[in-house]
Design a protein around this nucleic acid. Sequence first.
DNA 1: GTTGCGGTTGGATAA
DNA 2: GTTATCCAACCGCAA
Length: 555
Amino acid sequence: MAKRETIVHWFRKGLRIHDNPALSVAVDKVRENPAKYCLRPIFVLDPGIRKWLRVGPNRWRFLQQTLANLDENLRSINSRLYVVRGNPVDLFPKLFHDWNVTLLTYEHDIEPYAVQRDRKVETQAKEHRVEVHIEKSHTIFDPDVILKKNAGKTPLTYQKYASLAGECKIPQPLPAPQKLPVKYIAPEPDKEERRNPACYDAPSLKELDVDEASMGDCKFPGGETEALRRMEESLRNRSWVCNFEKPNTSPNSLEPSTTVLSPYLKFGCLSVRLFYGRVSEAIKGQKHSQPPVSLIGQIMWREFYYCAAAATPNFDKMVGNSVCMQVDWDTNKEHLEAWTHGRTGYPFIDAIMRQLRQEGWIHHLARHAVACFLTRGDLWISWEEGQRVFEELLLDADWALNAGNWMWLSASAFFHQFFRVYSPVAFGKKTDPEGKFIRKYVPELARFPAGIIYEPWKANLETQKKLGCIIGKDYPRRIVVHEEISKVNIQRMSAAYKRNKALKEEGLDGDSAATASSPAGKKRTASSSTPPAKGKTAPKRQRLENTIQKFFKKK
DNA sequence: GTTGCGGTTGGATAA
DNA sequence: GTTATCCAACCGCAA
């Protein structure tokens, strides 16, 4: 018998079998002719990734659980998951050859790292005469389609995005693929498998270097099965779904006040198209809240950020990012360290940062509070630093959303009312006047009464002794005085905006002068609205400064 | 080129 | 407890 051809489905995000169009293409082809084809659904675990990707233990555990569950779910359709260890670009040529691969399927990804990697793999596939089939299913709307509708311009407001998306068809979710037939025979073991039959098994926590004993309870286990269960649980309360308004949910309740489906959407354990469809069903014919604050609205925010991220080079950086305000952020290692580990001396901020480290999830508004505090509100530290910490600690850290939201909160893009600053004292009191949240995550302060727990520095030494926590010894003194520093920072932000405006005008002038003969001369490019790199010629810099000075005088 | 409007989620104070 | 107003005045977008 001639060796069968292997069809490989490559899981990256989209770690599910339901509504997975690329997987369905692979499975259907095998089902049509099991004598000719066999199936290997793979996940590539790259040990080298640890060198540059900062992922905390919570997220490794989530991934481990997700892969184990994916293997189970694939077994339910008479297949399994093959976890291949190594770098994709090194691995694929060998796999193509050893397995006699003729078709590779996967889900499209917009992240720059993925785009680059996939381009290489596609080239390799071509060299090995492997057909590649790609489906777009991580978002409802294809960013390319939205951009085309908007004459190639990135929509920078939610409303604009929503109106463009409103003209697009909403794709229907697919069911899980049908079972491979009983007579289907799994692929013949390759050389590696003959040596070690367990070589492609899903990883253990140990392999991922996760020491579970040192971690807190697992509040959000990974996996498609848990994702679907969690979604159904949220949908069961129909009136809650219909009345959902994000700004009215609590950032500091002891149990999450929102669905916590974000980690499942990030890894693709849950299809956003399925979620959208199920929410739409639930609110149909009922009085219900509206986007942008409704549940559907939340899904649309995700779509919005994905579109902006896909269309903007250097979306996760300030420099070279055409949508991002250029701000003279400070460097302050001690302050950054204090924020990162929940030792700012502001109990509300510290409680949130400790919850983040322990549990891997914090409420969206809690993210607002700590992000504003780190950047434009108090510490004047770059949003890129905060982005890095969230990337490491959040289960749901999704490249596009993380960068987009950090720019929003630091008033670097999308949001511009920089004089609206969250108070690290007042904001939390609205939804938790008793301070229960602080008592849970900052136990040093557990005995402080409601009246003072948000501002423990106000207690005199005698009181502090009585309450068993001396400020400056058992709990840190606050590292900045919010009432003062936030006023200074608003001024700094205002100056940054003026400077940015001047830079932009200068950039446009230069651009249109250089391309005066071209009809596309007025089009904004990635480089035209960013400041020139250090080392530009002196006259150009001088002109720039003059423009800035003019602007300052005008105001 | 200008103008006016709206923007998921602020805070402090007054009524 | 809720709602209105000021604070100082941002941006993108549509007309």
